[in-house]
Design a protein around this nucleic acid. Structure first.
Lengths: 249, 249
DNA sequence: CGTTCTCTTGACTCATCTCAAATCTGGTGG
DNA sequence: CCACCAGATTTGAGATGAGTCAAGAGAACG
């Protein structure tokens, strides 16, 4: 993670923001953006750095602008479960609650566009469009969490890996306005350990399942963190989703 | 489920509603309640009855008034995972989306206070307090879903059962404004099969773990669906939660 | 009071975990 | 540019928790 591309100059104007049309601020008009520009501030964390500890009082909320962050929870004896993976435009923090419920850790170098929680709460009260957008995004997060519950509770290790890769592939395709298809290449962003924590597996099982699917020609790896899909249909089938094959999304 | 108590007369006035102070309508004033009374309608489902199928277009949303409902998802080969358990005051349905994402089934006889989705969407647009309340409730649901992800991904069968019982016990205590403590009796509401679907286990494993905890004197069963707690501290310990012992809730 | 469904228990299997070691990768310094 | 190092990843061998299959016991229902 040290041969990073040069950091884009920040703060930037909202109108030029890469997440302008997807983040919580997407429904804002020019005037509202100007107000946001007055109260926002950028903050960058290096890969591995902790953004917030569960239980800690956090007075900031905000959106991921660049990079990837992980939300996870740890049991008394150290078992860890990731409960969310935040990509650009995803929102971190819970307006209306004092402390955060989960550890937040940077998976890659990650930059947030942040607001003081109090200030943000006042803002959404004045600006129903933002509140509506936050509700929409929270409902989407809830659907995603529930879909992940199905994976955690009922899928096999192989299906879990296939599902993760399908989701990552689709995200990558969507991001570049391509159709998802064979030949698609995408980065995994996270380590095997983080995948294990996300999928409710051990790192050895993650590794074995990836090796197995690779040996069967479903995809190849370039280095350890870049995947090239060779047979997307097969990968989707291996994901074992319900009858619609995940097309409902 | 046939020796049901006589159904309470419905529709009732909002002011007398048992979920008046907890449901999505809790922040409403008298005038707003009158408006709700004009557009609400009650609907009752028998235990086992399907309320909505995943993928189906559902033009209703609403709150559970009495009884318990289950939200679950089914994979192609029939594996099922429950993704939510709805108790009185919980909200069902997603404003802003055409079709429902999960199967909704009545666990007991259950009565909803329902609204046409379109009408409800117009309502929350006019009534920011309701929208705010819905956002709060959705954030709570998201936290609950994520906590459940930890259970599904990382807990042992024994811990899963203990966690479920602790949660049920606490809910029961809260409902009656009692402290949760030894001697508390509460109903499980759901079958072993539903517990298995909720916990990501098989019905046999659920049964074995319940028997094991019962044999060790942590609780006793009266019939198959009523639990009496004998050693709550032990049960909480068996739940294996993170250092705070779940006290953060 | 028999019928049916739910729940429990037993015996055995298997997917995943655990423990251990080898290999690879990316980064570093010579 | 290349050898080396530390951490990440893969692979192997064996253990085990939970699943599967099968049967019996208990509850609920008509």
């Amino acid at each position: 993670m040290s041969s990073m591309t040069a950091p884009r100059p920040l703060p930037i104007r909202c109108a030029d923001c890469p997440i302008r049309y997807r983040a919580v601020c997407s429904p804002c008009d020019e005037g509202e953006l100007q107000e946001l520009e007055r109260i926002k501030s950028y903050r960058t964390y290096e890969a591995g750095e902790t953004i917030a500890w569960a239980g800690e009082k956090l007075s900031l909320v905000g959106s991921v602008v660049e990079g990837v962050a992980m939300l996870s929870s740890t049991l008394a004896d150290g078992r860890r479960q990731m409960v969310g993976l935040l990509f650009p435009s995803d929102f971190l923090g819970r307006p209306g609650r004092e402390s955060v419920s989960y550890d937040a850790v940077a998976a890659t170098r990650v930059t947030f566009c942040m607001f003081q929680k109090r200030e943000f709460e006042r803002l959404i009260t004045r600006t129903p469009r933002i509140e509506r957008r936050l509700l929409e995004m929270t409902l989407d997060d809830l659907d995603a969490a529930r879909e992940w519950m199905v994976l955690l509770g009922r899928k096999t290790a192989r299906e879990k890996i296939a599902t993760l890769f399908v989701i990552m592939a689709r995200r990558e395709a969507t991001m570049h306005d391509q159709p998802a298809g064979d030949g698609l290449r995408f980065p995994l962003y996270i380590s095997r350990e983080a995948m294990a924590d996300y999928l409710g597996l051990t790192i050895e099982t993650v590794s074995r399942q990836i090796s197995s699917l690779r040996r069967e020609g479903v995809f190849t790896l370039e280095g350890n963190r870049t995947v090239q899909i060779h047979d997307l249909a097969r990968l989707i089938e291996e994901a074992g989703d319900d009858a619609d094959g995940g097309l409902a999304n």
